[in-house]
Design a protein around this nucleic acid. Structure first.
Length: 415
RNA sequence: CGGAGUGUAGCUCAGUUGGCUAGAGCACCUGGUUUGGGACCAGGGGGUCGAAGGUUCAAGUCCUUUCACUCCGACCA
């Protein structure tokens, strides 16, 4: 991608109506645009990051048997009344509207009910189980107060997966597989060391649910962790009984601030019973279905990555999610040098490398500042100075390490 | 939803006890000089001062209402 053709540009100043680091940096660097409080548009650079994150999640969900589809944003009231989650006392984040004929509808803040209703058409026999489906959907939640930039919006993208299982054991197997898959996701985006499977309140069916919490000051949760034993407990369930059960003492735990990046939940058979989803077993007898739901906040995860990896010069993207792998910055002025820079760009591009080519007619200082701000993992500078020796300069965003490499050796160096 | 704060150019802001044609920096346009860490000179375009109502000879400035945004809290299967 030639930067001269890239839609959006960087800013020197951050908008004053943003206090969170993730929104400030992402707006400054031209990744997102704020429509209103808690509602953000994703510009080409931001969208690339989102798609990279989604692809990682997609691969890991597919690997454990998930099948991607997509539900609707407009939902029927009746389904939510069956589970008593339509009224504002029980769910206070509904956006509601009505059709021209007066029929009330809701905008999806979650999808268990409609997906389970859908499943009634397709799951009829024990032979149909287990079934695992997931989607990337825009969730709409009428939050009383949006905050923390893209980490807590009124409109956000979530991956939500649902498992329909024959029995407790089958459910548990997939539940455990999902924990492993989630850990792989967070490892792949670079958060392995600071993300913890955390015991949290479990609701009616199990003692605990599991949250995936990533350490960040921008988070909203407080958890207690033990890094050696890999145990983490949400403060909301921290008590002596729980400590005893998990075999740790209070003294062994460290208090940290975290953001919830993922969450898995066991609904038992209750949700399916409420909605009338059952299958017949081998004897032709009707039996209840076990439901599990598993979420990862995609846009929130992007926000956490910004909070986690940025520095005073701007964004610092982990390689796996960077919008481009390489930022090729050309300082060339005359036609012959520009031709060489163009050739290098073409070579990198045609090798299948995601490369952003700063071919703009701008001053070096501005280009370097923009490059740092946008945060690609590798910066390659080509200029009259480097070309004199037939070289380019390679600088790594994370470490700041810098080296000069022969023009002919760029490809091998980058691999 | 309770508390606090802020609304003036695309962005960041200044604007005195009410007073003349509402300003600066950044960004943008034109010309020139520059070119390895956000350059400089000259010129230029851009404003319902968040909105509505009121007081006044006169309102960005005072009063009332309202809307939006931010932060703290509450809330967040």
């Amino acid at each position: 991608m030639r930067q001269s053709h890239l839609f959006t540009k960087t800013k020197k100043e951050v908008p004053k109506d943003e206090a969170s680091k993730n929104a400030q940096l992402l707006i400054k660097a031209g990744f997102i645009y704020k429509e209103m409080a808690g509602v953000y548009a994703y510009l080409p650079l931001g969208l690339r990051v989102l798609e990279k994150i989604k692809q990682i999640v997609r691969e890991e969900m597919d690997a454990i048997g998930g099948q991607e589809f997509i539900m609707t944003s407009i939902q029927r009231k009746e389904l939510w009344e069956k589970t008593d989650r339509w009224n504002d006392e029980n769910v206070d984040v509904w956006f509601k509207s009505s059709l021209k004929n007066g029929t009330e509808v809701g905008f999806g803040w979650s999808h268990e009910e409609p997906i389970t209703e859908l499943m009634k058409q397709y799951l009829t026999s024990y032979r149909d189980l287990p079934t695992y489906v997931y989607q990337f959907q825009t969730k709409l939640r009428n939050e009383l107060r949006a905050k923390s930039g893209i980490m807590r919006g009124r409109e956000f993208i979530m991956k939500d997966m649902y498992s329909y299982s024959l029995d407790e054991a089958q459910h548990q197997t997939f539940y455990d597989a999902t924990i492993e898959a989630y850990l792989k996701v967070f490892a792949r985006v670079g958060l392995a060391d600071d993300t913890f499977v955390t015991f949290a309140s479990g609701g009616a069916f199990t003692q605990f649910s599991h949250e995936f919490q990533t350490i960040t000051d921008a988070g909203e949760d407080v958890i207690y962790i033990n890094r050696e034993k890999h145990i983490a407990i949400n403060e909301e369930v921290m008590n002596d009984t729980v400590l005893k059960e998990l075999g740790v003492t209070r003294e062994e735990l460290e208090q940290v601030k975290t953001a919830e990046v993922g969450n898995i939940f066991n609904f038992g058979t209750v949700k399916c019973e409420q909605l009338g989803l059952s299958v017949v077993d081998a004897d032709g007898k009707s039996i209840p279905v076990f439901l599990g739901s598993y979420g990862i906040g995609i846009t929130r995860l992007m926000g956490v990555l910004v909070e986690h990896f940025s520095d005073e010069n701007g964004l610092v993207w982990p390689e796996a999610v960077a919008p481009f792998q390489i930022h090729l910055v050309s300082l060339c002025k005359d036609a012959i040098d520009i031709k060489k820079a163009d050739a290098l760009y073409t070579q990198l591009h045609e090798s299948g490398i995601d490369v952003l080519y700063d071919d703009r007619d701008a001053r070096p200082g501005e280009k370097f500042a923009d490059s740092d701000l946008m945060g690609m993992p590798v910066r390659v500078v080509i200029s009259p100075r480097t070309l004199e020796k037939g070289e380019v300069e390679i600088k790594y965003r994370t470490s700041g390490d810098e080296k000069h490499v022969a023009l002919t050796a760029v490809m091998t160096e980058i691999q």
